[in-house]
Write a protein that binds this DNA or RNA. Sequence first.
DNA 1: AAGAGGCCCTGATAGC
DNA 2: TGCTATCAGGGCCTCT
Length: 287
Amino acid sequence: MPELPEVEIIKQSLDQKIKLKKINKVIIRNRNLRFKIPLNFEIFLKNKIIKKVSRFSKYIIFHLSGGSFCIIHLGMSGTIHIVKKDKKIKFTNLSFYSSAYLPKKHNHVEIQFKNFKLIYNDPRRFGFFRLIEDSKKLSESFSHLGPEPFFKSFNLNYVSNFLKNKKKDIKSFLLDQKFVSGIGNIYASEILFLCKINPNKKAYKISKANCKKIIHFSKFVLKKAINKGGSSIRDFKNTSGNDGLFQREFNVYQRNYLNCLGHKCNGKIKKIIISNRSTFFCNICQK
DNA sequence: AAGAGGCCCTGATAGC
DNA sequence: TGCTATCAGGGCCTCT
């Protein structure tokens, strides 16, 4: 599910709902996520106050009283939702399940507050939780990640220097979190379509003009997706019962065999595999 | 250093 | 109905 826009939506509503709340109790039902949840996890969080919730790239960050942090990554299938005394609260944007569907399986982590609890559900268990002792270690834990598209450091100099001499295709670099963090498989295809760049194009062949387009449309697509409440595909919905709306704006993602939406283009959208991930593009518009 | 590929895991769906 | 194969929005690791 979650690329930067979806994580941003979740972060925004979490910050509203759990900021300044005290954790009463933590229950772990399955520690075997992407990384094993440490045995001191419950004790560490108990009685801590969530000072605020923030986000970097696809990571949610709980700022805890005492100066420590808890970071959450949702992997492919992680969802967070809020439950009040075994009844679901229809908080906006907190869960991507419909209100009619209360997940029972795969509720691996439960964080209890006074009047409600936060539930982490993750069928594939590619997500993870990590405890971070202080802000120095927090920045260390993100040091391997490149800038978000929104950062000033994601500029023409940086992009063209990074791609220079790289022989891999450009689409793989949009997914490479060391190059730029927050873009995932959906938005990589969408960004390249708007740039009119073929996803197979070798990175070193990307012109400066095209680097500018990549910078521009990376920001543009992610911002627009955030404004639309993210993308809901498959069975995902948010708690207010609504889907995110950005999937209606897809130009290429999952549109294989359909007409290209490019201006006066008669092409059909193609689906190919690049580094084991589905990739959608128009071979007429995108050169 | 950079790139290719495998792996972690469950569930939905398609095809036989 | 039930089997098998394929595919999912991510990212880590190893090998070359």
